[in-house]
Design a protein around this nucleic acid. Structure first.
Lengths: 232, 232
DNA sequence: CCATAAGCTTGACATTTATCAACTGTGGTG
DNA sequence: CACCACAGTTGATAAATGTCAAGCTTATGG
């Protein structure tokens, strides 16, 4: 692991509060590996042997059942994933695969649990992180159950517009097929949903989105911090 | 609070590991109250001042947006709810209302956080509970995104059959309108979904469900522990 | 530069789900 | 006992979403 990476991980909200004497022992047993795109890192149902951290690239968390498949989230640097399975020592509920060339840290789950037991601040950070994860999924659940696909797309666009700086033109940060899966629809329907947002000033050119009538779109999308804000 | 109730709460997995000297100070500031049916206990968006515990009765966790409403979960005795908001000191993401006459304990969130800081075992119990909650919602998310309403109903029935003892006849434990909302469909559609399961041996009489062709239903439902098991 | 493959889009169509209105049955109440 | 209120059901219809096949665009490699 590079020293800059070591520092970056140390600064993660999950590890920052940890005592100086504990962090090295957590990292000591860790692997760092570069993966090409489209590699399945973990498979749902397997035992959770490692806490994963994405240093660069991006990772798709997805799940399959009965021949169908859906994307549940995207993990971008620098953050951890599958913390809950690690802590509970339970099987993974989702699979994970690299979306592009990615650099991943693997920390043995047992080490995480050991230090969790001795470092109070780490324990507190884990609680905060888990509560955050929980609330994110609850929001996703509300998004899915309370909105039509058109409304989900509208709110997704507003959210990513803010994330991209707030300008009226911005770029999608993933393939449309994946976006469709994340939003709970088919790629064909996403295509039509973009068309359906034209009356609200949306135009699409490849991955470039333009929001011409901001107020109209916001009136239609009716975003709600209890569904759409990352922070709350 | 009755002494039996005190003991019951003490035995909850969330509180059982707590040191004997801390539990009284947690309960000292708590209220116990009886609520009639259909009382809104908390409203989404408000500050989370109390951790709630259902002693008897049942509570519906739901959320609304743009005039629509959906049930996200049912809380039954004896268990806590809105732990994540309490710990994060963040606004509630869901509203809660009594489904029937219910007895509820309210523990000031600040007390929970204070003892969380001093009692290691309590901290650990909270982590376990949060991880459990997180995984439950992830499963619900998979259920919703990977299955049709008919499949969700079939799996719901199998799950509740087991919960009710495994016999081929059992009772639904909530109104069909609520079940419909939990499963993410309209009451009309739930009615039709029950009809749609007739070929698999399902008959309905009021709240009484009969599964005549267990194997057929299971073949259709194709239940999966990573979606349908409470435990994993 | 062409050929190819892959993602995306479009149209036609099927399926699923929601909506609205009417009707049924049941339980409670005056 | 008559009446009402309400959950549930049913039918007709509409809207949303998925499926399949074909065509389009674009990036890439020989």
């Amino acid at each position: 692991m590079l020293d800059t990476e070591y520092q970056d991980i140390r600064k993660l909200s999950l590890f920052a509060p940890m005592a100086d004497e504990h962090f090295p022992s957590l990292v000591r047993g860790a692997y760092v590996q570069n993966f090409p795109a489209q590699i399945e890192l973990i498979t749902e149902g397997e035992q959770s042997d490692f806490l994963h951290i994405v240093l660069s690239g991006s990772v798709d968390l997805f799940s399959a059942w009965n021949g169908r498949e859906t994307s549940l989230a995207t993990v971008r640097p620098i953050s951890t994933f599958i913390l809950a399975a690690t802590i509970k020592d339970a099987p993974y509920l989702m699979s994970a695969r690299t979306l592009e060339k990615s650099r991943i840290v693997l920390i043995p789950s047992q080490d995480v649990r050991t230090i969790f037991d001795v470092d109070r601040n780490f324990g507190r950070a884990i609680v905060t992180e888990l509560a955050q994860c929980y609330r994110s999924v609850v929001k996703a659940q509300k998004d899915l159950k309370l909105r039509t696909s058109l409304e989900r797309l509208a709110n997704y666009l507003l959210k990513h517009q803010r994330h991209a700086g707030g300008g009226s033109v911005f770029e999608l940060d993933c393939e449309k097929r994946r976006l469709a899966s994340v939003l709970g629809m088919t790629p064909e329907n996403l295509s039509r949903a973009f068309k359906g947002l034209q009356p609200y000033g949306i135009t699409v050119n490849g991955t470039r989105i333009t929001i011409a009538k901001q107020a109209d779109l916001e009136r239609f999308a009716n975003p709600n911090p209890l569904i759409d804000d990352f922070s709350t």
